[in-house]
Simulated assay, not measured.
Amino acid sequence: MPRTQVLVAGDHFVTDALIREALNAELGADALSATTLTLPWPYTPYGRVAEVDEASGDEDSLIAALAGAQVAVTQMAPFTERVLAASDALKLIVCCRGGPVNINVQAATERGIAVCTTPGRNAVAAAEHTVALLLSALRGIPQRHASVQAGEWRSDLYALTECGSELAGSTVGLVGYGAIGRRVARILAAFDATVLVHDPYLPADAEVTSTPLAELLSRSAVVSLHARLSEETRGMIGAAEIAAMPRGATLVNTARGGLVDYPAVVEALGSGQLGAAAFDVYETEPVDPASPLLTAPHTALTPHLAGATVQTAQRAARLAATAVGAYLRGETPPALANPDALAVR
């Protein structure tokens, strides 16, 4: 039986070696003939390539590497209309991320090229990072760390007005209840926090009920965002929503920067309406060095790396290999973004 030609277009996170190891475990070393293309991300930031976004590498290198390939596995390669048009043998692309933003899915569908993703690959990492940021904000850990580094030993931080807050006994509102939100809820339960959820798309058999957003905001000492970014959710937390939260509440966002009005956050931190804020995502990335958010009080900030763990990369490779295996066995692969492509196949 001839080997299936596969392009492994890894990077320095989901590496070529991880993908090839997962493919061999799923299908056997003799089932595939693999070529590799190592993309420069994350040492070189991703960006827009032609009509696709959050991509790494260039079209010409990808076209050359795809010669004869029937399957491609990647996280960041730019599968543009031009690339797809030049890849006659290609039948399957597996994207090692939650959404195929670096793939022109419509153009792939028109050519009968199936596109799969690996949703949930970073749910554990993102949930744990969310709680780490939340605790850092509640206890002012970044500021305390900087103080100790500066040679200070501030006993005045025991003053009642300077103390942080506990999660135990607090009400935490989760906006969005997908794979990450559900895991955050389980972690918070271990802290004896009360969890409210707002998600209008909860399935009928969900173990929680959706609380109206206005009620969730008014009752929650901490609000953590886990919603997808869409026209419906863009800017969903602005000045009015922040004003509806209890004074001194904490806002956490590890989902997408476009969910939040950041100038409103800065103003609320300055006024004390927000007691703290913790963010891993921002409206513009990287953050403008002149952004007032960087000097706002009581913040815990990280550079969009909530999902960056060794286990996330390993899980993404395994999920991708599972999709390749299903497709090659003639099954409908999991997390298929364009089922109509199978009809063309």
Score class of each variant (00 low, 15 high):
residue 63 I to E: 12
residue 88 D to A: 15
residue 77 A to E: 01
residue 80 T to C: 13
residue 146 A to S: 11
residue 81 E to G: 15
residue 159 A to F: 06
residue 100 P to W: 04
residue 139 R to H: 11
residue 119 P to D: 06
residue 36 T to V: 14
residue 129 H to N: 05
residue 37 L to W: 02
residue 79 F to T: 01
residue 131 V to D: 12
residue 75 Q to S: 10
residue 60 D to Y: 00
residue 118 T to G: 11
residue 141 I to E: 04
residue 149 Q to G: 05
residue 58 D to W: 00
residue 109 T to C: 12
residue 102 N to E: 04
residue 103 I to Y: 04
residue 34 A to F: 04
residue 41 W to F: 14
residue 98 G to H: 05
residue 125 A to K: 07
residue 144 R to M: 15
residue 49 V to Y: 03
residue 121 R to L: 14
residue 98 G to A: 13
residue 49 V to S: 10
residue 133 L to H: 00
residue 44 T to F: 09
residue 39 L to K: 06
residue 91 K to A: 13
residue 143 Q to E: 14
residue 55 A to N: 03
residue 37 L to K: 06
residue 85 A to F: 07
residue 66 L to P: 03
residue 140 G to R: 13
residue 160 L to V: 03
residue 34 A to W: 08
residue 133 L to T: 02
residue 154 R to F: 00
residue 101 V to I: 12
residue 73 V to S: 09
residue 54 E to P: 01
residue 134 L to Y: 01
residue 141 I to N: 07
residue 49 V to F: 12
residue 128 E to R: 02
residue 138 L to Q: 11
residue 123 A to R: 10
residue 116 C to A: 09
residue 46 Y to H: 02
residue 37 L to N: 05
residue 128 E to Y: 04
residue 156 D to K: 04
residue 128 E to A: 11
residue 107 A to L: 12
residue 147 S to E: 15
residue 93 I to T: 00
residue 158 Y to A: 15
residue 115 V to P: 07
residue 94 V to S: 13
residue 103 I to G: 05
residue 95 C to Q: 09
residue 138 L to D: 07
residue 116 C to W: 00
residue 115 V to M: 10
residue 70 Q to P: 03
residue 137 A to M: 13
residue 159 A to T: 00
residue 39 L to H: 01
residue 113 I to V: 12
residue 59 E to V: 09
residue 52 V to H: 05
residue 53 D to P: 03
residue 136 S to E: 07
residue 92 L to R: 08
residue 129 H to D: 05
residue 69 A to N: 03
residue 62 L to F: 01
residue 133 L to C: 13
residue 122 N to M: 13
residue 77 A to K: 07
